[in-house]
Design a protein around this nucleic acid. Structure first.
Length: 579
RNA sequence: UGGGCGGUCGACUAAUGGUAGGUCAAGUGCCUUUGGAGCACUUUGUCUAGGUUCGAAUCCUAGCCGCCCAGCCA
């Protein structure tokens, strides 16, 4: 079956309501347009980032919506850079956006465009509006324009330059283009209605003078169109059927439509949805840029950043992000999604695919007193209990091991099932051991735990059928490889980092210890060949991903997300009871 | 106080005049060689007040609350 046939059938199935994909209001609009044959069955969307920062998880929602919708109905999605402000845009951002969008799974074929591709046409349209008496050159300064605009409750006043002749406007606009005037001295404005209750309709600026080198058009232009006079025009040129943007552009829709109507060009339809908000997370390119510039993080791809590059480096998969985006839905309510939702979808994805390994983050030495000195056994460990095809691996076992400090208590609290004096536990993939004693340092801290093992429990079960309440992970001390492990907390300590006390900066909400670097982690030897980007479950701890900084012999792992920790919950609750 | 847009479990989202359902979170139990995963069960909701209707989350009226808009940013 050809792709297009299948796509059409998919579209038909969707039209019949026979798919179980959860709908949303944008999809419903598309469905309705398809039913009424509004665009001849065509669905064409676009993803229009400004190359002034890195893509973040909020953009992922938009990418999934735009590309997902088009794909579902056999349509297309363009990648289009909204590059109308040369002062803020850079090639680095273009490159990162391409990389990140592709990584997420976006496919725009050969349709990667730039608003700047259309500068000639947009300029011609501006001239067209001038000739029609719908636009004029205004000599008011920025400050004057603001004053003349009026306020939320008061109408504006018309610019004294509003009624210049077409000839004069044409001449002036051309001289603006030729660079005869300094930045900010004049603008081209649409002649609409200074009394409109919608401020966007009070003679909005269409073109401003900016003697700035543009990343793509160089010094060809010294006038640049504003968003409002570029975006809809670009949509129209690309015959975009559904131009999906976020809620804050709702007030711009009348203007979007006004330009299209005055110009008599293809009527793309703007539809607004709610942008993503996540607890403990800031999704504002301006603020993320600030974090990078002030060195509060290690860069745009710092694993604590909500950028796609940061999240990727942290170990998230594109599938997890897509599943998350599908689950949160699309609406017009401005809500805030709990970060736990995102974390759920990484765990869900990684659970099925991440190979299990053993790693000890905070090592505590264990000596098995009755295990023969110098003996080494290769125990067979399951790679992934969720995936029978993942097979097994050999893990060396010897007399001296490391276990997690948290897995031993000299004085166990209630409901603590792990190792303590007199207690027997199972070593994951191996023997039962019983704690017989401890060695302390001068400070009274336990530095070594002594145990005996039961040779009859090699396969992890006791022949006499006795049970053990807990299984703990371990690594053989002499075989362990060292690694650096980076643990992350939320970048921000408050649920809504945008809420800032009067007069303060949002950085006051930064989590003081969002990065903890462990330099003494001990890994099982099978990890020696881990390459950057490789993902694992460190058993009982969480999902980890070899960092970009990782090299053979100098491994570095990021904790993507911890495993759900029932014991931590119990302990917290018990402590609350007693304290 | 002008205009625009919204208010459904703790969070997100369905139900488009006809049984308020799903996911996350939380809790309980089962299971378990990860206190993981899985399974089962449970708690909690239609902003308020009127009205229309046999029947309202849905329609009407009036309130209340929240978000966005006064860049020559997007």
């Amino acid at each position: 079956m050809s792709t297009s046939t299948r796509d059409k059938e998919t579209a038909a199935a969707a039209l019949n309501g026979s798919t179980d994909r959860p709908s949303n209001f944008v999809r419903d609009i598309v469905l309705e347009d398809l039913k009424t044959n509004r665009h001849g069955g065509r669905v064409h969307t676009r993803f229009p980032p400004e190359p002034n920062g890195y893509l973040h998880i909020g953009h992922a929602k938009s990418i999934c919506l735009n590309f997902g919708l088009a794909a579902e109905f056999g349509g297309k999605t363009n990648l289009r850079f909204d590059d109308t402000n040369p002062e803020k845009e850079e090639q680095e951002y273009v490159d990162s956006i391409v990389t990140d969008a592709r990584w997420l799974g976006a496919d725009w074929g050969d349709r990667m465009f730039y608003a700047s591709d259309y500068f000639d046409q947009i300029h011609a349209w501006a001239v067209q509006l001038v000739k029609a008496g719908k636009a004029y050159v205004c000599d008011l300064s920025a400050e004057e324009v603001r004053k003349y605009r009026g306020s939320l409750t008061e109408p504006g006043i018309e610019s004294p330059y509003r009624n210049r002749s077409v000839e004069e406007n044409l001449d002036l606009f051309e001289r603006m283009r030729l660079g005869e005037f300094p930045d900010g001295s004049r603008t081209l404005r649409a002649k609409i209605d200074m009394a409109s209750p919608n401020l966007n309709m009070r003679d909005p600026v269409m073109y401003r003078i900016l003697h700035a080198e543009h990343n793509r058009t160089g010094d060809k232009w010294c006038i640049y169109p504003m968003y409002d006079f570029a975006h809809g025009q670009s949509d129209s040129l690309e015959q975009i059927t559904h131009s999906i943007c976020t809620l804050e552009f709702e007030d711009h829709r009348p203007l979007y439509n006004w330009f299209i109507q005055q110009l008599g060009i293809f009527p793309s339809q703007q539809i607004e949805f709610d942008r993503l908000n996540l607890t403990y997370t800031l999704l504002s390119k301006r603020k993320l840029l600030q974090l990078v510039q002030e060195g509060r993080v290690r860069g745009w791809d710092d694993p604590r950043m909500p950028t796609l590059s940061g999240i990727r480096r942290r170990g998230y998969t594109p599938e997890a992000i897509r599943n998350f985006c599908a689950a949160i839905g699309v609406s017009k309510t401005n809500g805030i999604i709990e970060l736990a939702m995102l974390e759920h979808f990484v765990r869900e994805d990684l659970n099925t695919r991440a190979p299990r390994v053993m790693a000890v983050l905070h090592p505590l030495r264990v000596v098995i007193d009755n295990y023969p000195e110098g003996q080494v056994e290769e125990l067979e460990a399951v790679n992934n209990p969720e995936d029978p095809n993942a097979g097994t691996r050999k893990v060396p076992f010897s007399r001296s091991l490391y276990i997690e400090q948290d897995d031993f208590r000299e004085d166990p609290p209630k409901k603590f099932f792990r190792l303590f004096p007199g207690q027997e536990v199972r070593l994951r993939g191996g023997y039962f051991i019983t704690c017989t004693g401890v060695v302390k340092n001068d400070a009274g801290e336990v530095v070594e735990v002594h145990c005996t093992y039961d040779p009859a429990t090699r396969n992890g079960n006791a022949p006499d059928g006795r049970k053990v309440k807990s299984t703990i992970h371990w690594v053989s001390a002499e075989h362990a490889i060292d690694a650096e492990v980076r643990l992350y907390e939320n970048l921000f300590a408050t649920e809504n980092p945008g809420d800032v006390p009067e007069g303060q900066d949002f950085t006051v909400n930064l989590h003081p210890n969002s990065l903890e670097i462990l330099t003494n982690a001990k890994l099982e030897p099978s990890l020696a060949g881990a390459m950057p980007g490789d993902r694992y479950q460190f058993e009982r701890l969480g999902y980890f991903c070899a960092d970009l900084d990782s090299k053979p012999g100098a491994l570095v792992f990021n904790r993507t997300v911890p495993l759900r920790d029932t014991w931590a919950k119990i302990e917290k609750r018990e402590k609350g009871k007693s304290g």
